[in-house]
């Protein structure tokens, strides 16, 4: 069996992480069409679906990337827990550089996984037309489905929590992947760490803005 060096594994995690980040950003951009109203949003979705054979490949790739990212992070996580030895210190007081974002990354990651599954059943694997898409009796397609979902405050809240976790994940993840690929520069490395937190925060805010927008601003 081919044994991958720890660093190689880590770099695969980083590479897949990078693809996932790009997806998250792309998906965000697409979802921003919601601010253009139902026509714009459905048009975008329709346009996407018209690329079908290609899109299938992209989706399959995305799935594989997800799988790779998860399986490797999980295997690294288990190895790392073992590498610590049989127990941690009696006093848990990190020396100081460790962020909560990095401490919680396995949890935020798992939460994201749960969310994505829920999300796929929410929007992707279901019909984009029909009962869930009706707004005031008119079928608004995918827009309607999203609209109806987010009008429910609990549904919105679940999304907002999920994307906050995503932001957290990225606050550590973005700078981490840059370090893992080996970029280092005395001036830029510290800045990238700050930037990473901003990216995480902005992604969380930008995604949250969608349910909030629907919940608070859009009148039926």
């Amino acid at each position: 069996m081919l044994v991958l060096a720890s660093i190689t594994k880590k770099q695969i995690v980083a590479a897949t992480g990078l693809f996932l980040v790009l997806f998250v950003l792309g998906h965000l951009t697409g979802n921003f069409f919601i601010y253009g109203g139902s026509e714009a949003y459905n048009g975008y979705a329709h346009h996407l679906n018209s690329l079908r054979p290609v899109l299938n490949v992209v989706e399959a790739g995305l799935f594989l990337i997800f799988l790779l990212h998860m399986s490797l992070t999980i295997s690294l996580l288990i190895e790392n827990i073992q590498a610590r030895g049989f127990r941690r210190y009696a006093v848990d007081r990190p020396v100081g550089e460790r962020s909560w974002a990095s401490r919680l990354i396995p949890f935020t990651g798992t939460y994201i996984l749960g969310f994505v599954i829920f999300h796929l059943f929410d929007f992707a694997f279901v019909s984009h037309f029909g009962a869930r898409s009706l707004i005031n009796g008119i079928d608004r397609g995918l827009y309607g489905a999203v609209y109806n979902a987010f009008k429910d405050i609990r549904h919105s809240a679940a999304y907002i929590i999920a994307v906050s976790f995503l932001g957290f994940h990225l606050a550590h993840g973005v700078q981490s992947l840059i370090q893992t690929f080996g970029f280092e520069n005395p001036v830029w490395s510290p800045r990238i760490r700050v930037l990473s937190v901003w990216i995480g925060g902005l992604v969380a805010l930008a995604y949250s803005s969608i349910p909030l927008f629907i919940l608070l601003y859009v009148k039926s």
Binding site: A5, I7, K9, Q82, V95, G96, E97, I105
Partner: peptide, 22 residues
């Protein structure tokens, strides 16, 4: 060196940066 490091049972890096602080 990385191969030996792995063989010795050290963990891998998740960029926690505790090491440089210590």
């Amino acid at each position: 060196m990385v191969k030996q490091m792995d063989k010795e049972g050290f963990g891998s890096c998740s960029n926690e940066y505790e090491c440089q602080a210590a």
